[in-house]
Design a protein around this nucleic acid. Structure first.
Lengths: 193, 193
DNA sequence: CGCGGGTTTGATGATGCTCAAGCCCGGTGG
DNA sequence: CCACCGGGCTTGAGCATCATCAAACCCGCG
């Protein structure tokens, strides 16, 4: 099993060598070139993806035609549309590669089989989802409590590498502001420093 | 085991009579009068609470002294501070009762034992967390995509009973707007109807 | 070398906040 | 039973933040 994935799992549950080996078979390696899509709105999200290398993002396009970045996923992160994956309903999200990426895909069926065979993975995914939920709640509160500038600074502090690697207008979209506003915020911060 | 809890679990996993019976023992019944607290910021969140009856809410007070409602929890919902519960760190949330409530509490230790004894519950909590995550992501996108008025109307459609039961200034706080703004929005909507 | 996407800059405007005051209503004490 | 108190909701005026629209600029790439 890949070292990156191994570490990610080992942080939350202890798997034996054998269990690790058993898990390996359920994942499907995939390379995704820059700008290529893993998922498009309208399709059913067939897999949960673990990012070994590269940078992905998920986003949606709302009724007014505006794009909103939901998530960035660099190495060591998972990305998918949980709703579509769980229910089998068509997704309303897009997932694409901002940098060429190497992924480990887990299809729905394969995941179920893995959870049967290695029950500890049920616990792993429970903890994964729980941690994602905690982070998402923080983000929600952040958008309620803080100004655009404060949110940008918080993002800079928490995920500097993402701010580095993603183009600025996508950072703006993630923060829920326009590219113009982000540009002005950066100017203002720079003038203070 | 309580009927409400039974239904909530049965929606996600199939438990036998015996398993249900086994689970029951791990929960602790508690009545919480109106305005009483289940958790205060600074304390460690000792339990996950299932709401059998009544209405709870979690909120935080930010650095500027503003209150932000994170969640409402009527019958059939779970509420806690996942972060504090998982890590044992002090919480930064308050949880209190907007209506007198009947709860089933699950302490950390008891939860672990239950997961040992009834492994299906690990799956249940995984699905619970996953669904909460989906809902939370929707909320985040909602605050990015929609105006205050649109968000209020969406809340009205999705959770009319919560809008009914919670005081207006808490609804405003949940939506991330001031009570004044919500009042004006309601006036505007009424004048259209 | 020129094209084009992304970023910057400027001017204007809308949405929602702040502060202040009045109102409505339910609960409490006289 | 009534008077009063107080919290929550409403209303208004002025203001801050951020969006919109338009134009210029920058720079990597074909």
């Amino acid at each position: 099993m890949s070292q990156v994935l191994f570490n990610s799992i080992q942080q939350k549950v202890q798997l034996s060598e054998i269990e690790m080996e058993q898990c390996r078979g359920f994942f499907l390696a995939k390379k995704l070139p820059k700008k290529h899509y893993l998922l498009r709105a309208g399709e059913v999200c067939a897999y949960i993806a673990f990012v070994e290398q590269g940078l992905l993002r998920s986003y949606t396009i709302d009724a007014k035609g505006n794009e909103h970045v939901l998530q960035f996923a660099p190495e060591g992160w998972w990305i998918s549309d949980n709703y579509s994956f769980l229910t089998g309903e068509p997704s309303s999200y897009f997932i694409d590669a901002l940098e060429r990426a190497e992924l480990l895909l887990l299809k729905c069926r394969a995941m179920e089989e893995m959870l049967q065979k290695v029950p500890k993975m049920e616990r792993f995914f429970r903890l994964l989802m729980q941690n994602n939920l905690i982070a998402q709640q923080r983000r929600t509160l952040g958008t309620l409590s803080f100004s655009a500038e404060e949110r940008y600074i918080r993002l800079l502090n928490q995920y500097p590498e993402i701010v580095q690697r993603a183009p600025q207008h996508l950072i703006a979209s993630y923060l829920g502001i326009t590219p113009e506003t982000l540009s002005r915020i950066r100017k203002k911060i720079a003038s203070r420093a």
